Simulated scan of single mutants.
Amino acid sequence: MSLESNQNGKRTALPVRPGIAGDAPYGAPQLDVPYQLNTNENPYGPTPEVIETITREVTAAAAGLNRYPDRDFTRLRGDLADYLAKESGVRLAPDNIWAANGSNEVMIHILQAFGGPGRSAMVFTPAYAMYSEYARDTLTDFHAVPRRADFSIDLEAAARAIEELAPTVIFLTSPNNPTGTALTLDEVRAITTAASRVDIGGAPAIVVVDEAYAEFRREGAGSALELLSEFPNLAVTRTMSKAFALAGGRLGYLAASEQFVDTLRVVRLPYHLSSVTQAVAHAALMHADVLLSQVATIRTERDALVSWLRSQTYQGKSLEVADSDANFVFFGRFEDRHAVWQGLLDQGVLIRESGPEGWLRVTVGTPTEMEAFKNALVKELGL
């Protein structure tokens, strides 16, 4: 299959790779509306103090932009290790840390290093839609194993699927996107143990726990970081886009064994992390306490939204709402979710059509944004 391009009035065919021919680019709608609650962004921007530090650090980096950046971003890896030690209680060495332009690029590095032709990746669906695209882009086969109706993972079914399909890489998302569902450490341990029994040329399958929303998990919930010393085939990814309110900074990172990290260094592009990106992330980590101070507020607003949605009756039934440990809420079910989505959009509220048919996802915003969402939903559904 080919893609046509208009060049000097003449239509010419392009030799598009079969695996992507006809595909549309991934991306949530970017619309100029008053209430944008569709991409799980943090609604609270950086404070003037944080902006001042970022400006100072970027200005210092700008003086050396004629030189390539530190390709191993040594200072930043130390900053991230220090942050994780404080956030999760797990002390890692800088050599156990990897970073890239968003956790998306980290995932691509993982499949470039461990996936590829003749190998496969596995996810438990519904899951983040980009996982299948990471596999497609790295020529890695892709297996989707359904979750239970409550969006939890059937551990026995998971173990059977891992044994039968022998994936090289297994992606676990906790809290899960789009459902908000979190995994316990025992669940992560069970799946990683099953992965350890897979034989990939004498090595076990790899488990990657995507903890993009980890900071929003409920008090007392553990992080898969606690299992790294137990499983050398385990990696945990994080991002600064959500809790750190740094979506525009594009910094995602990974914690794993030094051997795992060194393997990723083989496939990364030279100087993939710019001096400016490193400076912004360093500055943000200097103010981690300030930037994360709104996390508790978002958790409280999330829990209140879950309770409110569950109290609403639509067509004779209470709305279904998934438990959430993230900064968003997954709710339904609607016979025509697109009509509901459009009705909210017509009122200036943009949310997300995501996951199985009938379900919608809304990002937790400020109290003002949540009130606008509730009012729009009441009007649209006649609640």
Rank of each mutant, 00 (worst) to 15 (best):
F142D: 08
L285P: 01
A13C: 02
I153L: 12
S274P: 04
A203Y: 13
T53N: 09
V90E: 07
Y83H: 09
A13D: 07
V266E: 15
G116Q: 09
P48I: 04
I191G: 11
N38V: 01
A129Y: 12
L309T: 08
S2V: 07
Y271S: 07
P48K: 09
S196E: 14
I200F: 13
S274H: 06
H143R: 02
L80Y: 05
S318E: 10
M130Y: 05
L264N: 06
A157T: 03
T53W: 09
L31T: 04
R218C: 12
S257Q: 10
L350K: 08
I298H: 03
W98I: 04
T59S: 13
A60H: 02
L84A: 00
Y314T: 02
A166D: 05
R361E: 15
P232G: 06
G89C: 13
G355F: 13
E163F: 09
H338S: 12
E156R: 14
T363M: 12
T363I: 10
L185A: 01
P178V: 12
Q7P: 00
A190V: 14
G343N: 07
A24D: 00
R160T: 12
T140C: 07
L309G: 05
L383G: 13
D137L: 03
I170D: 05
P178K: 10
L37N: 03
L14N: 11
L165I: 08
N40I: 04
N38I: 00
T53A: 08
Y83R: 11
L305Q: 10
Q278E: 12
I170S: 07
A245Y: 08
G252D: 01
T239Q: 03
D23N: 11
P126K: 07
P48S: 03
T313A: 11
G248K: 01
G355I: 12
E156T: 15
V50I: 04
G343V: 03
E371A: 15
H143C: 07
R136M: 02
T59Y: 08
G202V: 03
A144E: 03
A288G: 05
L31Q: 01
Q259S: 10
Q259G: 04
L225N: 15
L92V: 06
G202D: 05
Y134V: 10
A372N: 05
A279Y: 00
A60W: 00
A100L: 12
S311W: 11
P25S: 03
R189S: 15
A100P: 06
A28N: 01
Q7V: 00
I170C: 08
L172R: 04
K10Y: 02
L264V: 03
A24F: 00
V209D: 15
M107K: 14
S257L: 09
E301S: 00
